[in-house]
């Protein structure tokens, strides 16, 4: 079995495809507009209605999907590197669920009215709580299966609290607001929403970047990684912090969107020689691309009510998750 490494070509291809997908998202939608009006609006020479649709509705939404996909897939790739397990992902490990629970709590008790920062900060706090918990548990449990089960537990717990809040929701508006965060959606996002999340996304990306060489070393396992000169504890902190910030910020924009963090790194890995450090950037780009396309599907499928992005992502992602899990026969005998 030869190991292939096409990282530069892959990154270039993904950037080109992402730009095309983003452009397509701006040009396609439920309001039928002729191409020439859209293109004019695109370059800033169109009529007011077309400009509004492109710049205020479609582009922010497409960018939100792209950024959220990047953040979640990057987090997934980093968690997989740290835990040495291709099934680790913010959704599966309960990080997204905990993060959206915290976001929903701020909506439920009306904290969101205090400041626009409350919701993103709460979402990040929830994500950090879950990643921190996982990082504490990870060295103690020998089997990755146990760790995934702990994640499932965290996810279920957050889900139960969320159901409780839904159960007790005071009015239908709160209810629909909360549902949005649980199902995951980028509908009606503005550029302001993205700017609010931006500092956390940048900080998270930097933290993951700092952890990258360590993820490569961790291929050998923790003891051997430490033996070749890696400060394992520090790597763990960078990844926990980075994935907490990225997932929290992603949830604050779009709510819980699952599985993109598993699919993207899984598809990318064979093309970058399975190096966990080289997986990060292409996985993030592919995650962004996948969500832009998924959101386009959600918008264009002619259903009575618009599909939620999280639902589309899960419908595509969950079967792939099962496929990866079944194919990984050695899961039980890991480590």
């Amino acid at each position: 079995m030869k190991v292939q490494n096409h990282t530069p070509t892959l990154i270039l291809t993904l950037v080109v495809l992402s730009v095309l997908a983003l452009a397509a998202s701006c040009l396609m939608g439920v309001t039928p507009l002729p191409l020439n009006r859209l293109l004019a609006a695109f370059v800033g020479a169109g009529d007011a209605q077309a400009e509004l649709i492109v710049w205020e509705i479609r582009l922010p939404r497409a960018l939100a999907a792209f950024v959220v996909g990047m953040a979640l897939a990057g987090s997934g790739a980093a968690l997989q590197g740290l835990l040495r397990n291709p099934l680790a992902e913010p959704g599966v490990l309960g990080v997204s669920a905990m993060s959206s629970l915290f976001a929903v709590i701020t909506i439920y008790w009306g904290f969101v009215q205090v400041s626009p920062w409350v919701l993103p900060l709460a979402a990040i706090a929830g994500a950090l709580l879950a990643t921190g918990l996982l990082a504490l548990v990870a060295p103690r449990v020998q089997s990755v299966v146990t760790l995934v089960l702990v994640g499932v537990g965290i996810s279920s717990l957050a889900g139960a609290f969320m159901s409780l809040l839904l159960n007790l929701a005071p009015n239908p508006f709160t209810l629909s607001d909360m549902m949005n965060w649980m199902m995951g959606s980028v509908a009606n996002r503005s550029l302001e929403d993205l700017l609010l999340a931006a500092p956390f996304l940048v900080a998270g990306a930097i933290a993951i970047g700092l952890a990258a060489p360590g993820l490569r070393a961790l291929t050998l396992g923790e003891e051997a990684a430490s033996a070749i000169g890696l400060d394992v504890g520090r790597s763990r902190i960078w990844v926990v912090l980075g994935t907490g910030l990225l997932t929290g910020a992603a949830v604050s924009v779009a709510g819980a969107v699952g599985f993109v963090g598993i699919i993207a790194p899984h598809l990318v890995r064979p093309l970058v020689g399975h190096d966990p450090a080289r997986t990060l950037l292409p996985a993030a780009l592919l995650g962004g691309l996948v969500l832009v396309v998924a959101d386009l599907i959600a918008r264009l499928v002619p259903t009575g009510q618009e599909l939620k992005l999280g639902v589309v992502a899960a419908l595509i992602g969950a079967p792939i998750f099962i496929w990866i899990a079944v194919r990984r026969r050695t899961l039980e005998s890991d480590q």
Partner: peptide, 8 residues
């Protein structure tokens, strides 16, 4: 420990 996590 000899096992490597990824097929590098």
């Amino acid at each position: 420990a000899r096992k490597l996590a990824w097929p590098i």
